Every structure is written in C-alpha cells, then in structure tokens.
Amino acid sequence: MISFILNLLFYRRSNPSFSNEELNDFEDLYIRAIQNNGVINYQYDFPKYRFIDYLIQEKNFVAHGSNIKDIELFETRKQTLFNGEYVNAIFATKDGIWPIFYAILDRSKVVNNFRNGCFKALNNKKYYFFSLTKKTLDKDPWTTGVIYFLLSESFEQTNKTRVHFDEWISRQETKPVLKLDVSKEDFEYINKISTHKPKESIIITWLLYKIRTSILGHSKRTDNFK
C-alpha cells in the first residue's frame, strides 16, 4: 500500500547495478581526482548522478550540493530537519540525484519558498518531488554549482522510519574530499519541476505534484510545435 501511494504521488528512480564499464571508469576517475587535489574532471557519457552514487556506495561518502564553488571547510549552522526541528549541523545525503537540485538552484532567485524531497523506503526504492513557486520558475532560476563529497563517518541519519527523507547530518565541521561541477543539464528531473502556491499546505503540493508536472510537460511539448 505504501509503495502504491508513493508511486501515485512521486517519481521513482530506477537504480540498476553498475556495469563493469562504469566500475572501471569510475574507479579510474576517483583515483585521478584524489591525485588532483580532489577536483573531478568528468568526461564520460554516463550521467553524473551515477558517479555520485558510486562514490557514495563504494567509497563511503555523503554528498552536499551548493552554488558556492570554493568551500574549503563545512561548518555547522542552525537549520531545520524535515520535521521542523532545529539543529546545528551540516546537511548531506546518500543519494546521487537530490544534491544536484541544491547545487543548480540559484537561491537568490527563489520567491517565497521551494519544496523538494528524496524519500527512501525500506525496500531501498527512492522517490522524488521538486516544486517551486511560479514566480521563481519564471525567473529561470538555474545556475551551475558543485557537489561536495564528505567522509560519512561523522554523519548520522536523521530518521529511520519505514519511509524517510534520505537526509544525513554531522554536528562537527568537516573538510570536503572531492568536488564535482554540475549544471542544469546534469539534473535528471529538470522537466519534472512543478509549481505550487506559496501558502498552500505541503500535503496539497504532494497530492498535485505529478498532475502539475504532467500539465507543464504537455505545455512544453505543445510550445515545441508552435
């Protein structure tokens, strides 16, 4: 029943195993990045989120996306968890797609608020939603950014219920080990961004998310034939 509801409301990602070619290329890229002061020079046809997944799953990293391209030390700051609880921490995730959204969304162009999430179910399936206000979307709020990779030892999962956000926090400062440039073209769900009213409840945003993205997608296809 829970899987049915999640599939009804949100988009579920496919998560195939890494091919031998991916494993060989990603391992080589990881070694070269370590030798290059942590800078990743990505030149493969595989989607970047696959390499992010590889570093998370195989090299024990968490990922953090940001517009700021020169972070040398992550420090804790007061933020809110998914449930509204305040915490002084560094936020990260063990998902390859979600941090790209944070890296490419230009916060200076956000009007009112934005909503998003990566839900993880106990069957390890992941579900996403991404929503902006119309005023934000009209500003074309996309930029380039960076995915930072931090060692996961000091991070803890914020929730372990049957369905939870793939959200991890650390309560101590930490230095990034690797960094990867990303852009709008690297975000798999760029055409799955919905719009919501600034003051509507999050439940309404969830209930209407796929309907709204379908309408927006139809509008874009119609525009292409004008």
Rank of each mutant, 00 (worst) to 15 (best):
R171D: 01
I211M: 01
W206T: 07
E167I: 04
W206M: 09
I193L: 14
N191D: 15
Q172M: 06
I204M: 11
L178Q: 02
N191K: 06
I203V: 02
L208K: 02
L208W: 00
Q172E: 11
Q172Y: 02
E185D: 13
N191A: 10
K192T: 09
S170I: 00
I190G: 00
I202L: 12
I204K: 11
E173Y: 08
K199N: 15
Y209F: 10
R212M: 04
S194N: 04
L208P: 13
E188R: 04
K199W: 14
I204P: 08
I190D: 09
N191M: 09
Q172V: 04
I169W: 11
K179A: 02
I193P: 13
S201V: 03
Y189N: 15
R212C: 04
L207S: 10
I202P: 06
D186H: 05
R171A: 03
E167N: 13
F187N: 12
K175A: 07
K184Q: 11
R171G: 02
S201F: 00
D186V: 15
I204C: 13
N191C: 10
E200L: 06
I203T: 00
N191Y: 12
L207N: 08
E173K: 01
K179E: 00
S170F: 00
E167R: 02
D186I: 15
T174E: 04
R212S: 07
F187A: 11
W206N: 12
V182M: 08
P198T: 00
K199S: 11
K175T: 05
Y189S: 15
Q172C: 14
Y209V: 06
L180Q: 07
P176K: 00
I204Q: 07
V177Y: 03
Y209K: 08
K199F: 14
S194C: 06
I202A: 15
D186Y: 09
T174K: 11
L208I: 00
K179F: 05
H196N: 12
E185K: 05
I169P: 10
